[in-house]
Design a protein around this nucleic acid. Sequence first.
DNA 1: CTATTTACCTATTGACATAGTAGGCAAATG
DNA 2: CATTTGCCTACTATGTCAATAGGTAAATAG
Lengths: 135, 135
Amino acid sequence: MISTKGRYALRVMIDLAKQDADGYVPLKDIADRQQISKKYLEIIVKELVSAKLLVGVSGKGGGYKLSKKPEEYSVGEILEATEGTLAVVACLSENAEKCPRAASCATLPMWSEYNKLVHDFFNSKTLKDLMAEKQ
Amino acid sequence: MISTKGRYALRVMIDLAKQDADGYVPLKDIADRQQISKKYLEIIVKELVSAKLLVGVSGKGGGYKLSKKPEEYSVGEILEATEGTLAVVACLSENAEKCPRAASCATLPMWSEYNKLVHDFFNSKTLKDLMAEKQ
DNA sequence: CTATTTACCTATTGACATAGTAGGCAAATG
DNA sequence: CATTTGCCTACTATGTCAATAGGTAAATAG
């Protein structure tokens, strides 16, 4: 299940995509508009900055802005930055140790198929697609 | 992410599907074959019995057996019985309270689409499909 | 130079889920 | 009646989620 963290991250990104692309937007404004605790958003936004999806600038006139154009973000990369992984089972995550049962696992083919489905879905959606939606 | 519980449940069901369909199979045997703690499996199997996916019989000669034919189980119902829900976001789970943001939510359409994708995927796969795999 | 605004940092919390373990009771059969 | 099996309650360690609290660092406006 996609957690609050990932869902909030998307809302922040959509919010930023809708603001003037040149200026920096203070987190306080985003928190007010989205009705989300600013303190909690700090944690989320920090991860988005680490992942280079956002640029943050301190001080007066500072805030956050997108590091590229909305159509250049996949929803998948935003979720992966905050959720840690989009892998559908532990053994298919990036840094999973090799499962000794893999060769004879009756369920692995299904998990792999499902994993691809999920990744393809989120990688094919862009931030711009979500901007187009209402609100 | 699908948890150990759901993955173990599938392995138990597959294991049972491969045994003689008439007799009852002791949990100890399944645990030995699958190399999973029998104690932990007790918890999982109990939930499968509650959901009427398995029938359990106590005493000598007892054990568990499928309550219907392998091709009549969807993978979805097995996972739902153990994972609680397959909903991809909280607001789309069965007993979720109505979200006040729903009407104006920019991400809801995507979540709904994703939710359908996931449910369709698991509801279209049957236990028999998994039996056919190696092991 | 100073006050203000902003991001950024560490730490803590309560609630809950995960992945088990322990020990015993109840039922069924040989 | 002993053995085998399911079934029940309880407990635990670890981790994640969703925050909250309180401070430090950087940048700008005046």
